[in-house]
Structure formats: C-alpha cells, structure tokens
C-alpha cells in the first residue's frame, strides 16, 4: 500500500502558561488516506482542535509549541518545512474551516475581496479570472445569486451563509486535505444538516481527505469513515466508524455513547460518566480516565496504557484489553 496522504506520528504540542506547562496534545498518531474522512471526537480540553492547528502549522507561538513527533503530508514532514512553504500549503493543498465563521472572516472586506485574495495568491490568475472562479465557487457551495453575494460584507449574511463562504474559500484551490473544526456547532440543526450535506457532496466530488473535529457523535456517525476519540490530550480509541459504534472498547467511549440522549433512546435515566475532566496541570498518573472509570483497578494508575489492538484497525488505550483478542460474535463489553 502506498504512503498515506497524511500521517501524524507521536505528535506532542505543549502550551506554556502562567500556571506552568502542559501538553495539549500528547503522543497522538493517526493516518489518513486520500478521500478518507476521519472524525476526531472529544470534549473541551481533549486536544482535538490543537491537533488540527498543529497540522496546519497554526499553533499560536507563544504560548504553544510543537514539542515532538512528525506530521507527514504528501511525503514531506511539515514540521521541517520553512514557514514560507507552509503558507503555500495552507489554503492550497490543505485548508481549514472553523466553528465561528464570523471571526474568521474579516468584517471590513467584502466576501468577494476575501475570496479573490486566496485565488489570486494561490493560482496566480488575474482579478477578472478570480472573480469568475469566485462566482463558480459560491455557486458550488449552494449560495443563490453568487455574483451579488460577492459584494456583500460578512455581517450581511447569516451564520449558515457565512459558513458556506468559508467552505468556498477553503475549496478555492482544490485542497487535498480539509480540516473542519466544529464546522456546524454554532449552527441550528436544520442548517447543520444543510452544511453537512454540502460537505459530504464536495468531499466525494473532489475526493478530499477530511479531518472532522466535533464533540457530536451523531455528526461523526453520519460523516466519518473512521474515528479517533481523544481524552485529555491523548487518543484513547481509534476505529472504523461502524466498528466504533458497534464495539466501543474504551470505557470513555462507552460512557460517551451511553450518556447521549438520542431520539431513539428510551429509559428513565441517562447513564453518566462520573466526575469531571481533570485539569491539564494535575493529570493523574497512569491512565488519565481512571478516576472516572467504572472499571478502574490499581494497575490503571501505574502506567499510561498503550494502544492495544481489538481487531485490525481498531485500537483502544485500556489495560483491560491486554492480551485480549476480541470475540467477534460478542457485541459491546470487551471484558466480562
């Protein structure tokens, strides 16, 4: 098999604050092939957004810094590229969209101006050609009357419309990799459905690889091919999407899945994960989830559990899986 489009190895990104230093992303590895969609799931403080920023080379420095690991994209280690090269890649071969499009669009320029900028810079075309291309892009992302919209300012648009503009900007240079950081979290459900639909269409059409960062397991289930669950800066479980929902193997993943009230959920009480996410400055020794885990045992506090294979492509960082091979006929609970 050829080299994957993106391969992240042992990524470690640290932040220095007044209260000390902590690793927002700690030893995270994953791979992504062309045209593949990975969902990165986690709660606030899990390091999912910092993972994306690290790949884009956008970690604010200071206070942040990539302290170790390797990010290979199309055969090159991004961490060794000079900033000039990185800038060429960003908005070219890889692009990113954010949760709040209002803050990522400049309020004093028209939508058109902001679109042209990227097109002219990355494609080296003239203003007129850029305008044509911009109209084409807005049309592509489902904006009606694109030529008129080009002359509007971001504040004249609704949230869903702005997110479409952001997607158009990201698409401007046919990226091979799109990073979407909670792209629908700020939107209403009906608009979220529109945007997800649009993203899926575009992803298939352009065979883009997508990193979808979200806290919403529903979005992951509908959109991603594979999933990485993060907790306190570490990946705790990776699996193909069907596998993950069918056989969640890390107690945190299991807890997450159980605590969401879905539409087809019945029953009087939700099952919860007890306690709260620990402070990044006071991480417990060993497994970071142990204090909240209903299966915790003394050994959990001794060492950070490595990723252990459940079935091919499905790994989880839980010592209960040690020496265990999944009985494929069994459904959820990996250990009796």
């Amino acid at each position: 098999m050829s080299e994957p489009l993106l391969s992240v190895r042992n990524l470690k990104t640290v932040f220095k604050t007044e209260d000390g230093q902590f690793a927002a992303v700690d030893d995270v590895s994953f791979e992504l092939n062309e045209g593949e969609v990975i969902g990165i799931v986690g709660e606030s403080g899990s390091g999912k957004s910092v993972t994306a920023l690290s790949i884009m080379g956008l970690v604010p420095n200071p206070p942040g810094r990539i302290a170790g690991g390797e990010i290979r994209f199309e055969g090159r280690n991004l961490l060794e590229l000079p900033e000039r090269e990185m800038r060429r890649l960003r908005g070219g071969r890889m692009a990113m969209i954010f949760q709040e499009p209002m803050t990522s669009l400049n309020p004093v320029f028209t939508v058109g101006d902001q679109l042209f900028e990227g097109i002219i810079e990355h494609e080296g075309v003239g203003k007129r050609a850029a305008r044509d291309r911009a109209v084409e892009l807005l049309d592509k992302v489902g904006i009606a009357a694109p030529a008129e919209r080009l002359d509007q300012y971001p504040h004249q648009m609704s949230g869903g419309m702005r997110q479409r503009v952001m997607i158009a900007m990201a698409l401007a240079c046919n990226p091979k990799l799109l990073l979407a950081d909670e792209p629908t979290t700020a939107l209403d459900v009906t608009i979220q459905a529109q945007i997800l639909d649009l993203l899926r269409e575009l992803q298939e059409e352009f065979r883009m690889a997508v990193i979808m960062i979200t806290h919403n397991l529903g979005v992951v289930a509908e959109f991603a091919h594979k999933v990485m669950v993060m907790y306190c800066g570490r990946a705790v479980e990776t699996a193909p999407v069907g596998e993950l929902f069918e056989r969640p193997s890390h107690p945190y993943t299991q807890g997450l899945l159980r605590s969401i009230p879905h539409l087809d959920h019945e029953g009087a009480r939700l099952r919860t994960i007890k306690g709260t996410v620990p402070s990044p400055f006071a991480l417990p020794p060993g497994c970071r989830f142990a204090a909240r885990c209903e299966h915790a045992r003394p050994a959990c506090a001794e060492a950070e559990p490595p990723m252990i294979g459940v079935v091919p492509d499905h790994e989880a960082a839980c010592i209960r899986l040690t020496g265990y091979r999944h009985d494929l006929t069994r459904a959820t609970e990996p250990v009796a």
């Binding site: 459900v189 009906t190 459905a193 639909d197 397991l217 289930a221 509908e222």
Partner: peptide, 25 residues
C-alpha cells in the same frame, strides 16, 4: 418533521429519509 430528521444520529449507516429544508429562518 424536518427538525427531527435533521438531527445526526449516532448510528452509522442509519440511512434515514432526510427532509433537508431549503434556505434559512
């Protein structure tokens, strides 16, 4: 109906009939 069908369900391959509303509020 549209609102209910718009919610992403944490069940891969659920493959529901989705009513996607046009436009915005």
């Amino acid at each position: 109906r549209a609102l209910l069908s718009a919610i992403p369900v944490p069940r891969p391959g659920a493959g529901r009939e989705r009513v996607i509303l046009q436009g915005e509020v």
